[in-house]
Design a protein around this nucleic acid. Structure first.
Lengths: 333, 333
DNA sequence: TATGGTGATGTAATCGATTTCATGGAGGGC
DNA sequence: GCCCTCCATGAAATCGATTACATCACCATA
């Protein structure tokens, strides 16, 4: 491929001048600039970003490590991140941790090796030594969706406490009493927070939280299915199963379908995290919608502010209850 | 950050020796190797991939340009690509073209600038000058899902012709005659091929292909909805609408729902491209499933074979009809 | 003992850009 | 006409790795 040296020779100038043209340095004659541009297109020159990055110590690249690329929540998050990064002139490298700490660490290593200008992580575990070390290096870092307590890292997340309280109130108004929650893993902040919010909301609503109705999955389809199986096999199964994310809801629906049970008559269903197809399920699924793409955009803004040395605070955006028909009660309006 | 020079000084050796350790060069004493490793971890050294790439002219990075990151088809494709690339020791940079040729070109430029070792593109347009030029540079390139005729670029795609014929046979056996196809854009090979296969299958089945039942969308939700609206407003609306991809199906379902029509009694629905939630729709959607992740994996193998100078042929993997209940006829079977 | 081979390590060039500092010419003020 | 300033451009150092080639020590063989 053509190098800057070739362009310089072709245009009859020095490499310094070509570099100035590339970087819009105003101290280049219009006439020289034109000659350089002509040489660049004649040689189909594409500047080598690798060489440039080595010299400038900046890659104009951000790393994003998500929990699971097959989860539409993370996909939409990635979309928000990408849009905002693009607007700011950055390229995003997405790493899929597949909800495994070692995969996450692999991408941390790779992205640090690539010298990304900043890192957005949806941490898949409590902490790993590598992440701890990463924090201490002071490299621009923001946690997205999930947080890790005890580390001084700014975060952007959704706050579902109010929405969960609204959901519990809705379920209570429908006459439901036996409500189960299939949450995410207790090792993730999102798993814990949702469980805590649920327990608090139930208690404040005067409803009993049965220990056997509280299960922790892993935010994947199979665990939603397994938990549903277990709950429905209880001597006294719950009237409602509230799932901690959209994939667990999907798994739960599979199990309910396989048993030939009807929603909401045999068992009602609600989901934390809303996805487009929930309106097409029979019946449409009541869900808590997160401002997903906005989380991604805000995270990029926060990261770039941090990287530029500007002050920037952590953000929690409220989630919102969307009532559909999957929790209606026989005979209730 | 610590550089190779710092590690060398700390271990009391030259940078060449450290480099040898990094690259598993056998001509380093075990004792020296240990000292170097000790120095690396003491300094928390992470090799600078930027510098390494500049020198070796290889980035161990592949670029993947997909049509739409919000489309689960592309997400699963990306997953397949990522898995296989990872196995081969490559990192993947995903660019989202958002179904726009200029976004696609932006990523082509960026990824070529980053000197990726190979490029996987799901082209969003017939051709662009930039893509044409890219082909002529001989850089390792594979088209994925979609192809561009007239360019000598190997591809990996799904072949849906047989599955579409199977679908038409199924619809016919259910007694359906007025079948509409809401395909993708004629500018994309996938849009054209599916339309051609549909027309061929209809003709061979002895069914009439009404021009007003053939519409081209853009593989996005809104066009599925718009086409459905138009079809249902016809003086004689179709009995079945077959959608060209999963997002158009989603849009179509929205419109059908909004009108309060029932599937399949008022209008039957089928989709090219299957997604997990189709089984939960009421009724479950009959769809043509593509070997999506496998397409991604094979594309990486093909690309790496090409890059290594090995012979490698284009691949078309068959798609398969999955019959569910969305096309059943009143009183049929 | 001299010679040659072998194996471990070091020196320095190199990749392709950016950037500091130097240079030479044009133009303006006196 | 002289000197100073300013402006456009060039020469060369630099970023952090890899690698060809040089070097040195050590040992075996004649």
């Amino acid at each position: 491929m053509a190098r800057i040296k070739d362009v310089a020779a072709h245009a009859g100038v020095s490499v310094a001048t070509v570099s100035r043209v590339l970087n819009d340095n105003p101290s280049v004659t219009a006439e020289t600039r034109d000659r350089v541009y002509a040489a660049m297109s004649a040689l189909r020159y594409v500047p080598n970003a690798v060489a440039r990055s080595l010299r400038t110590e900046a890659t104009r690249t951000l790393g994003l490590i998500i929990g699971d690329i097959l989860n539409p929540f993370f996909t939409e998050l990635a979309r928000g991140v990408e849009d905002e990064a693009r607007r700011a002139g950055y390229t995003v490298i997405i790493g899929n941790a597949d909800e495994r700490a070692e995969e996450q660490d692999h991408y941390v290593r790779t992205l640090v090796g690539q010298r990304v200008d900043g890192l957005l992580i949806c941490p898949t575990a409590e902490v790993t030594p590598l992440v701890q070390e990463l924090v201490s290096t002071g490299r621009p870092l923001v946690f997205l969706d999930r947080t890790i307590s005890g580390l001084d890292v700014p975060y952007v997340r959704a706050d579902g406490a109010q929405a969960i309280a609204d959901l519990v109130a809705h379920l209570k108004s429908m006459g439901h009493r036996r409500i189960a929650f299939a949450s995410g893993p207790a090792t993730l902040s999102t798993g814990r927070e949702r469980t805590d919010a649920f327990v608090t909301a139930m208690t404040e609503a005067g409803l009993e939280v049965r220990p056997e109705y509280l299960a922790a999955g892993d935010f994947r389809e199979s665990s939603g299915r397994a938990i549903t199986r277990h709950l429905l096999d209880l001597a006294e199964p719950p009237e409602v199963i509230f799932f901690g994310d959209n994939l667990m809801t999907l798994g739960g629906l599979d199990e309910i379908r396989a048993r030939g049970l009807r929603i909401p008559d045999d068992v009602a269903v609600a989901s934390f995290d809303d996805v487009t197809w929930f309106v097409h399920v029979d019946p449409p699924i009541t869900a808590i919608a997160q401002p997903t793409a906005e989380l991604g955009r805000r995270a990029v803004q926060l990261l770039l502010d941090r990287a530029a040395g500007r002050a920037a605070e952590s953000i929690a955006l409220p989630a919102e209850l969307v009532i559909r028909r999957s929790c209606e009660r026989k005979g209730a309006c």
